[in-house]
Amino acid sequence: MSFGYIGDTSTSVKQQVKNKGILTTQESFDLERQGFLGGSLELIAEQTHSTNVTTIDFLNIKEDVYDVHLLQFSNIQGDGTSGSDLSIRFYESGVLESASVYQYAFQFGGATGTFGEFNSTSDTSIFSIAGNFQNNIANGYVYFYNLGNSSKYSFCTFQTKTGHPTQSAIMKFGGGVLPQTSVVDGIRLFIDTGENFTAFNFSLFGVKQI
């Protein structure tokens, strides 16, 4: 494996000694501190199923460190019998926002050929980023933007693929927003019917910055 320093690529660098690709402890520390070593995503928190729950909260999301977050999820299952849509709410300074203030828009397409648009300017959540996955499972990813920035709205984009009770499987991509200037310091995942999660794997990452 080759090594290279990328901390300073300006022409002011006049390398006098051949780089053998060996990093000292101090060099490793310096590079890591500058963001050039040690990874590009930080796994902030992971939640997997042990008992059935109706909500899953991420409450230590390092919103003061990262302005882009990535949430990945797989094998999401519920115990409902009348539709199951995975939805999102945000905590603003520790208080869950559940008023009709969320907006979203997504494209969906079913494997049996039903395609369409779905949107809202006043919902109580960013509704149905995945689903309806009744008696099936949901999978996908969400990017969150600006969560910790008190002068910006909190946005997301997502793409998902889930099983579907009548379409066999359904894909979605789109986005959502909480159009309020606030510090979002928590993320709630829930199924809009209020049913239990009976299986889930959620991983929240911070997209690394210097």
């Binding site: 990945q72 990813y141 793409q159």
Partner: peptide, 17 residues
């Protein structure tokens, strides 16, 4: 992206761009 591939009791899902 590949989801649930190693899970023996679930289907294997894919998103593609």
């Amino acid at each position: 992206y590949l989801f649930n591939f190693a899970n023996a009791s679930e289907y294997s899902f894919i998103t593609m761009e």
